[in-house]
Structures are given as C-alpha cells and as structure tokens.
C-alpha cells in the first residue's frame, strides 16, 4: 500500500511514517548534490540566506542528464546520500523536512533526523529514466554555473520512494 504525500510537508505528517513504508510524493522538491551543498554551507557560514526556504521542504540528491527537446528533464535518479552527510545536520536543524537519495547515512545524520523529526527516503538507484516520468516541471533556481549540480525546483507527481530512516531513527538498511 502506497502512502500519498504532498511536499512541502508538515513534521506531524512525517512522524506518521515508518521505515519500510512505500510512499508516493507529489508537489515541489529541490535538487542539490555535492557542489550545491558546499555553496549552501558557505552561504550559511557567511551569514547569507539559502537560495530557497528549506523549512518543511524536501531535498532530492540528484543531478540530471540534459533534457532533449520536448522533455522536462533528462534521466533523474538519486545519487549516493552519504556524500552530503557532512552538510546535512545543519540543514536539518534549520528545518529541512526530508531528503531523497540512496545509500547509508552517518550516525550524525541519524541523530539530526531524530532531533528534528525528519525523514530520509530512498528512490530506486539507477532508475533515472523511469523516475524522470514523475517530474512535470523543472527550473534552475540557483548556482546555474554548476551545470548538473545547480539547484533545481522540481514539480513532481506520484514520485515513488521508500522510507529508509523514519523520524524515530529506525533504519531499513540496518534491519
């Protein structure tokens, strides 16, 4: 049974999710991977604002391939989340609601997820063509010079994910 979710998302809704739940997400999410996280960290450290309001929002760790004419986006599957672990606790403490990626997270991210009642979802790694069909709109909103690593605002419909780490810190990979 798939649980339908809409992003941005309330913490109270996230707290209902359990590790192993299959979900399908619609709404607005933002992409960011290595280089964008580094820039966001630099922005915060020098007292500047983030390029989007992360409160209750979802970051998708993804850098797409280019869209052909008539396509919204190219291939668009998740990248390995652990490379963002260094930056993630700070973003969670600032209100980031959830993340979509693939692969294991660090103990520090686990703690920050529990502390903030956040959730870590996994999408199917290596299914970028299939997942691209759930992306209905795509707009670069920051760091355009980073190419595929720029921050994109995505409108998604029924994007399939699985809850890997729930808000209590239960981790499906460790089960």
């Amino acid at each position: 049974m798939e649980i339908k979710l809409t992003s941005p998302i309330e913490k109270s809704r996230l707290s209902e999710l359990k590790a192993g739940d299959m979900v399908s997400i619609s709404g607005t999410i933002y992409t960011a991977r290595d280089a964008a996280h580094k820039r966001m960290e630099e922005a915060l450290s020098s007292g500047r604002e983030l390029p989007f309001d992360i409160k209750g929002n979802i970051i998708y760790y993804m850098g797409p391939s280019p869209a052909r004419e008539g396509q919204v986006i190219g291939s668009a599957g998740p990248t390995t989340a652990s490379r963002m672990d260094k930056y993630t606790p700070r973003l969670l403490d600032l209100g980031l609601g959830a993340m979509i990626g693939k692969g294991k997270r660090s103990p520090e991210v686990h703690e920050a997820i529990i502390r903030n009642g956040a959730v870590y979802f996994a999408a199917i790694g290596g299914a970028g063509a299939l997942l691209s069909k759930c992306i209905k709109a795509c707009e670069v909103i920051a760091y355009e010079d980073l190419g595929t690593e720029a921050i994109r605002k995505l409108t998604i419909e029924d994007f399939p994910c699985i809850v890997v780490i729930d808000s209590t810190g239960e981790d499906l990979y460790l089960k």
């Binding site: 391939s65 190219g74 291939s75 668009a76 199917i124 063509a129 299939l130």
Partner: peptide, 18 residues
C-alpha cells in the same frame, strides 16, 4: 522497475541512469 526503466531508456532515448 529496473526492467521498466530499461524499456523507457531505450524507447524514449533517456539515459538509463543520470
């Protein structure tokens, strides 16, 4: 899903993986 992904990649010229 991975099998379906391969079909879409091939028929719609979207790379199998980003």
């Amino acid at each position: 899903q991975l099998d379906k992904n391969l079909e879409i990649a091939s028929s719609e010229s979207i790379p199998i993986c980003q």
